[in-house]
Design a protein around this nucleic acid. Structure first.
Lengths: 337, 337
DNA sequence: CTGAAAGCGCTAACAC
DNA sequence: GTGTTAGCGCTTTCAG
């Protein structure tokens, strides 16, 4: 059996309450006994049992991070930001991949609730939060990343999506592109709606008519394959004169697939068609890729999410928090525009 | 206060032991009361407290994953494999990034021990495990990934590194390359030693003399920058006739930097110099990169690590486990050779 | 300043 | 079948 507070109390001939106090650096304890206790504890290799402590304190110094997929290059940076900030605040992180699956997401949230996490950071796999009712009932502190939840008591850390695509369009127009298309990720996603809004807003600003045939969307997955396939179809369908001369993609993965399709059609990027992504994931800056993209401050988003979550945890109840923390995206101009 | 086993016992007028039994589907309990309890529990939104349960069961259904950096593209896949397998086995994962720092690694291991994890999966940031003495004393079940720990009671999940570079050399020679160099990652790393060994072994097999000037190494970090800088120097130093015609890199990141340096020197890959990486991280297969590389089964490694860890946890004590589980790497021939 | 004792929420003997 | 009770390791009143 491991050495407990009790073992060391017996060893020293004091009560275990005293040992507890000494170890927690409680003021009301003789400096001398404190020293003796601490020495003994080290000597015996005592490790406090955080589970037992958590049971009485109702605080586990543990938070849950539920994301769709750590394998998607957007998330490692976010996770790192969360984890780094958690480390400095003294928390450990449960990592959960929902795999874009509501049931799994629900299951994880329940598991985390049972494990008594002090808080939750979630990037929901879907805008519809019906499956998270237990969470919402549980009054647990939570912050959302990349997805705006219009509810009191919750705050979302997001990037200014509208501004992001606006910047992208502005840049394209400045470069002389006129026929700008948008490849989105399905109407229902919050970020997609916002990015589309920014796209339209910027076009309007420049007196360019929105052309419906220039707005397309992939369905389920937002990776390079789906981008590739969609663009293939676009290129096959249209006669060349009706092709866009620039494309803004919902994310970098899609952009990459799009570029691949364009090249296979023996067109040049950016001379024939320019491409802009969104996110600025790891490979986008590689010399072989050099994708122009709207960068999200991913690490920062994670960090801020954790920090505000900790603030929420520490603030007993009714303090008001912003319901949105909106970060500014940055346009990284590289070689595909 | 949350609803506990006690609340629902009072509500139903039964003892809370009965509630516990019912909820745990214990055989010795009347089907009818069982049903009533379960209904009531659902009705009241009861969530078991895993912390309390853990205290008595001495089992938290929680395992710690300590890796250097989730942001390094090698690890998300591993983490995903671990997590996926954990989900099916009913465990949650604590994710910890040591950031290649021993102190932090030690700190995390201690924190996890205190949080009473049932087991640990670690990719140590260094071969020297001096800082993990507490772990080693604690008799906690652990499995290592990518790093061989020659100790009883521990098992390591690794790839056959020797075979990996052997395959790489064989392939290069088959393609007609003769002057094959190796860019390593510092003598002390286990995987580096093994890969170097495979390189030398294969050269010997083909009766090619090992040339010391063809073996170089980056220092601290194993990313594209360090590969780029090292290769820059190599290219600057040597007169063209002494240049290798092929390079095997310790990993894909290094390979990428190497390629970049080669291209900047106005040499072609693979015509002038071929390059092979190791790992097969996400971007290596992209159409713009198409790096020939020795693929590690990363997801599998994580999955297997978790599965054997769970086996260890379940097997009470002295069952024997392999000290190494060696997976076979696969050579992915793409466009850089 | 220190000890005794209660209790966090739950499980597991042990009675009845 | 069900209730009673002890106890997991710890913190925290409450006495002294």
């Amino acid at each position: 059996m491991a050495v407990t507070i009790k073992t060391i109390a017996e060893e020293l001939g004091v009560s275990y309450a005293t040992v507890s106090r000494a170890l927690n650096d409680h003021p009301d304890v003789n400096d001398d006994t404190k020293k003796r206790v601490i020495e003994k504890a080290n000597e015996m290799g005592y490790q406090p049992n955080a589970i037992a402590r958590g049971l009485v304190n109702k605080e586990t110094k543990t938070i849950g991070l539920v994301i769709p997929d750590i394998t998607n290059p957007f998330f490692p940076q976010v996770a790192r930001g969360v984890e780094e900030a958690a480390a400095t605040a003294g928390y450990n992180i449960f990592l959960c991949n929902s795999n874009w699956n509501k049931d799994r997401e629900e299951h994880y949230v329940n598991a985390l609730l049972q494990k008594q996490v002090d808080g939750l950071i979630i990037t929901p796999s879907s805008e519809d939060l019906g499956h998270l009712k237990k969470l919402l009932k549980s009054k647990i502190k939570a912050v959302f990343i990349s997805s705006f939840i219009p509810m009191e008591n919750y705050t979302s850390v997001i990037v200014d999506n509208v501004l992001g695509t606006e910047k992208a369009v502005d840049h394209l127009i400045e470069k002389g592109y006129k026929k700008i298309a948008f490849i989105g990720a399905g109407e229902e996603r919050f970020a997609n709606k916002e990015r589309l809004k920014g796209y339209k807003k910027a076009l309007a600003k420049h007196n360019i008519k929105v052309r419906d045939e220039f707005i397309t969307s992939v369905k389920r997955s937002y990776d390079q394959e789906s981008g590739y396939e969609l663009m293939k179809k676009v290129l096959a369908r249209a006669d060349k004169s009706k092709l866009p001369d620039a494309i803004i993609c919902y994310n970098d993965l899609l952009a990459l697939g799009t570029i691949q399709a364009i090249k296979e059609a023996e067109l040049r990027v950016p001379e024939d068609i320019a491409v802009i992504g969104f996110d600025d994931i790891f490979f986008s800056s590689l010399s072989e890729i050099k994708l122009t993209t709207v960068a999200q401050p991913k690490y920062e988003m994670g960090k801020i999410a954790l920090e505000t979550l900790v603030e929420k945890i520490k603030s007993n109840s009714d303090k008001e928090f912003k319901s949105q923390i909106i970060l500014t995206p940055e346009l990284k101009i590289r070689k595909t525009t």
